[in-house]
Write a protein that binds this DNA or RNA. Structure first.
Length: 316
DNA sequence: AATTGCTCCAACCGCGAGATT
DNA sequence: CAATCTCGCGGTTGGAGCAAT
C-alpha cells in the first residue's frame, strides 16, 4: 500500500501562481495564520494543494523575504557553510535572514558551483581539483593509475573543460599535507550531534575540536577586500580564507569574480551569523534547536575579528 | 525573423521524521 | 505502541526569458 497523497490531484490547480491566488493566500494567512496547510487552500478559496500553498508562502509571499541578488557576504557565507555542512540548505538559509532554502539551493546550483569550479575548486569536496588528481595518483598502485585517473577526470570533465577553456590555471601539483577524509555528500547521514557541533563551531571558533576534519579556524570571512581562497589546513582538510589583502582585482578568480560589478569594501574580517526573525524558544545562550537537530543561532548579530595573520596562511 | 541552446528560478515530488490520535 | 497525519527537506523538473547562431 502506497502513501496517501497529500491532496486529490484531480481537483487541484498546478503551475504558476496568479496574482489573485497570491492575494487570496496572503490575506487568509494574515488573518488566520499558517496552522493547518491542508485546510488553508479550502478555507482560502484556492484550488491548490496545501503543500503548494506552503511552498508559495515560504518561498515567495512571506513578508520578511529578500528578493534581490545575493550579496558577496551572503555568497561567502553559503560557500563556507556548505563546506562544513554540505547540502543542508535549510541550515545554511537559517543563517541568511530573508533567504529561503530554495533560494540558497538555486543560487548554489546556478552560480556558486560554477564559480568554485572556475577557481579550480571541486564544489563537492571544496578541495582544489589539482589536489584531487594528486590524491588519486598517490593513492593508487601504478597499474591502476591510468584507468582510474582517467575515470576520475571523466567525472570532472565539465569542470576541467571549463577551466581549460575559460581560465588559465596552474595545474602544477603542490605538496599538500594529507587531508583528513572530508566528504560533504555524507553529511546527511552523520550524527545529529555532530551537525550541531559544527554549526556551533562556526559561531564560536574557539570551540572547534583540535584535529577534526572540519577544523575551520580562521576560515570565515564575510566582509573583506582581497583574495578569498581555499587552502589546506595542516592535517585537517581545507580552509577558506584570505590569501591576500587589499589586492582587489589581482587576486584569485574568486576575488575577481566576487569583485566584478560591485564594490568590494575594505573592512575587518568578520563573520556575522544572524537569526531569522520571529524565532523563539532559544536556550540560555540564544540558540534554538530545530526539529531536525540543526541549530538556529538567535543572539544578536555575532561578530568576531579574525587576525589577518591567521588568514594569510599561504601554502608553501 | 526564426530557431536553437542556455540560464535561472519557481514549483513539484518523494521521503523522513515528528506530532497526534 | 501502532497507525495516521502533517510538515519540512533536498533533489529534480519545466518553462520563461535571454543570447547566440
Amino acid at each position: 500500500m502506497g502513501r496517501i497523497p497529500c491532496c486529490e490531484k484531480d481537483n487541484v490547480k498546478r503551475g504558476q501562481w496568479t496574482p489573485e491566488e497570491d492575494q487570496k493566500l496572503s490575506s487568509y494567512i494574515a488573518q488566520h495564520g499558517t496552522r493547518n496547510w491542508r485546510l488553508i487552500p479550502k478555507h482560502a478559496g484556492l484550488q491548490r494543494c496545501g503543500k503548494s500553498c506552503r511552498l508559495r508562502w515560504t518561498n515567495y509571499l512571506r513578508p520578511d523575504l529578500k528578493h534581490g541578488q545575493f550579496t558577496e557576504a551572503e555568497e561567502q557565507t553559503i560557500v563556507t557553510l556548505h563546506s562544513v555542512l554540505g547540502n543542508r540548505w535549510s541550515v545554511i538559509a537559517a543563517q541568511l535572514p530573508g533567504r529561503t532554502d530554495n533560494d540558497v539551493k538555486n543560487h548554489w546550483n546556478t552560480k556558486l558551483k560554477k564559480k568554485l569550479s572556475g577557481m579550480g575548486i571541486d564544489p563537492v569536496t571544496h578541495k582544489p581539483f589539482s589536489h584531487l588528481i594528486n590524491e588519486i595518483a598517490t593513492t593508487l598502485s601504478p597499474p591502476q593509475v591510468p584507468h582510474l585517473a582517467e575515470a576520475a577526470l571523466g567525472c570532472f570533465k565539465d569542470e576541467m573543460l571549463h577551466l581549460l577553456t575559460k581560465r588559465r590555471i596552474d595545474l602544477q601539483l603542490q605538496q599538500y599535507s594529507p587531508a583528513a577524509p572530508f566528504n560533504t555528500t555524507c553529511v546527511k547521514h552523520e550524527d545529529k550531534d555532530e551537525i550541531i557541533e559544527k554549526t556551533k563551531a562556526i559561531k564560536e571558533p574557539d570551540m572547534l575540536p583540535i584535529n577534526k576534519p572540519w577544523d575551520y579556524t580562521g576560515a570565515m570571512s564575510t566582509n573583506f577586500s582581497g583574495t578569498f581562497s581555499c587552502f589546506p589546513a595542516s592535517d585537517s582538510g581545507y580552509h577558506y580564507g584570505l590569501a591576500s589583502l587589499g589586492n582587489e582585482g589581482n587576486g584569485s578568480p574568486w576575488s575577481q569574480s566576487m569583485c566584478m560589478g560591485s564594490t568590494c569594501t575594505a573592512g575587518d574580517q568578520q563573520v556575522c551569523l544572524k537569526k531569522p526573525e520571529g524565532e523563539n524558544g532559544e536556550d540560555s545562550e540564544g540558540r534554538k534547536e530545530t526539529r531536525d537537530g540543526s541549530i538556529i543561532i538567535s543572539s544578536e548579530c555575532v561578530l568576531w575579528d579574525i587576525p589577518s595573520d591567521d588568514l594569510i596562511n599561504h601554502v608553501d
